[in-house]
Structures are given as C-alpha cells and as structure tokens.
Design a protein around this nucleic acid. Structure first.
Ligand code: MN
Ligand code: MN
Ligand code: ZN
Ligand code: ZN
Lengths: 145, 145
DNA sequence: TCATATAATGAAAATGGTTTTCAATTTCCG
DNA sequence: CGGAAATTGAAAACCATTTTCATTATATGA
C-alpha cells in the first residue's frame, strides 16, 4: 500500500519549507496547516477563509505567496477541474493521480496506472515523443452516494 | 483509422451552428474558420488576432461569445495546460484524448486508451463510483525534434 | 541575549483577462 | 421587402491575481 499524502503531518511540511530556505512565520505556518490537513482542492480564497479562522489577521496576498512556496517545495499541486483551475491540494507521493468527487470535492490519490503500452502505440502512430501525462478520474465518493 | 477532427470542414461547422440556432454572421463565420482550420490550442486573443487578419473589425468580445457558441455546439473544447487553461481547440470525435507538443503547441488526438481495469481497481479500493476521466499526453512532435 | 540584515507581511494600487451593458447593426423569417 | 430579435463592438465593470511599498517578524551570529 502506497503512503497516503494526506497523512503527512504538519511538522514534516514545516521542516521541508525550512530546508528550502523559507522563514517559518506565523502566516506561512497557518497556510501550511490548512493545506496539510485538507482532502479537498482549495482555492486561495478558501484557504484565506480557513486560515483566518486560526489567524485572523492573515492577508489574502500572503495566501498566494505561501501557496507558491508550498508548490515550489513540491508539497502542494494545482488541480484543474471543469469548474476552475485555481485549486490546490497536497501533492502526490511518487506516481499517483487524483480521483475527485464531483459532489463534495473530496479527493483521493490512486496508483497503478500503466499507460506504457498506450504511449508506445501513440508514439508510433503520431511520431511524437511522449514525455509525460495528465490523468484524473472523476466520480462520486462513498458518502455522497 | 478514426476520423481526424482537424479535417472537418468549415461548411459542416457552420451548418452545425445553424442547426443549433445561431445566426451565421460574418464575425461568427470568421471565428469558426479560424478554429476549424487550426491544430493548436488557441487563446481568445490568438483567435482575435488571426480573425482580424481576415475581418479587421472583429471585436474581442465577439470572439469570447463565438467560442462559447462553438463550445456549446460541441465543436471546440477548452484545453488545460501548465501554461494556462484558456486555450480552445477543435473537439474530439468520439472517445479521443489530446497529445500536445510542448515546443510548438501542435496537438493530435489519439484513441485506444483503455483504463477500464484501472477504473475497476480504483473503484474497489476507494469506494468511489468513477464517472469520467481526463487524460492528456505531453511530448515533442516530429518537426520539433 | 541582543543587534542587525533581510525575508516576509498586509494594505492599497495596478494589472490583465473576462463579462456586462447598451446603442447600433445585421440576420432571417414572414 | 419590412421588422422582430439576435448579434455586434466600444466602453465600462468585474474580479482574480500581482506588484508596490512601508512596516514587522525571523534568523543569525557577535
Ligand atoms: Mn500516470
Ligand atoms: Mn479515455
Ligand atoms: Zn463526495
Ligand atoms: Zn512541435
């Protein structure tokens, strides 16, 4: 069973940010706490609202800057959806892709996609060299059915 | 061999728009001509620039409205990429996905992805019901290597 | 511990892509 | 042909994100 990205704890994220040269300020810690403890893709404003519940004088600009740091450090990733592409969620550990509930937004990572045969076939037919892929599954989670 | 969405001709697109209740105005025809004759994902401004080469008094607002009509009619689709999610390209015919050149932006559709085994496995493990998927391949096209 | 350099913050302003408004124009049906 | 109604383009509004800048907080090392 692969490690669950959502079980990674706050301390690890903070030391990772520390190692990458960030100062561990209160606002950054708050954004990190919100992002590490959530299983949904959150927009900057949602992070802002959740963050202010912990630290009321948090600024929205700081949320944007903190998300950028978390993304640079590889701790969160952007999530593209039909409804918008400004969501952020805890990054996968290794080769994983997202499965997102269309009703409540809850997300899980899954492993085991093997598209190497498909890639070979597509490369042969198209004469492209394939370097990477995006895969995302959409559905309904257990509690939403 | 599946039909190539990029070979669909302008007349078909126009009659499709006609059938869906649009008035075939000069600006809409111009945007349709640009979109049906291009193999790259184009942003609204790119469509605007290409369109004005044909019809100089075309307005950017009309480009937005025309792209919306083309999307509603199922003739174009939005393309999500790392560099932005405001690109539009001719829609696939049936079950196809995009392969995009990272260098020049040229895109091809491919068929034959079969992820049903993966979906079954993921459904069993996650207890989600999977309803759909996004798949996109990125690479380098023949002329860019 | 304390002084200091400097990274980080938050408010306000700027930016830039997209949408809305509205009067004028064009299409298409009768 | 009219004439109703959809469509257009310019201007203004909107809104998410970025930039600016004076102030504050952090880390470092004397
Ligand atoms: Mn994969
Ligand atoms: Mn597929
Ligand atoms: Zn759900
Ligand atoms: Zn190319």
């Amino acid at each position: 069973m692969p490690p669950d990205p959502f079980s990674v704890d706050l301390e690890e994220w903070l030391s990772c940010l520390d190692r990458s040269g960030c100062r561990l300020t209160e606002p950054l810690k708050v954004v990190t706490e919100v992002m590490s403890g959530n299983r949904r893709a959150l927009s900057p404003v949602e992070v802002y609202d959740l963050g202010r519940a912990i630290y009321p004088k948090l600024g929205l600009v700081t949320v944007y800057r903190s998300l950028e740091k978390l993304e640079s450090a590889g701790l969160v990733q952007r999530v593209h959806q039909v409804g918008g592409c400004n969501g952020y969620i805890a990054a996968p550990q290794g080769h994983q892709h997202l499965l997102i509930c269309q009703i409540c937004g809850r997300a899980e990572y899954f492993t085991g996609d093997d598209i190497s045969d498909l890639v070979s076939r597509v490369e042969a037919q198209s004469h492209y060299t394939v370097q990477g892929h995006w895969l995302q599954l959409f559905g309904v989670c257990e509690s939403c059915k």
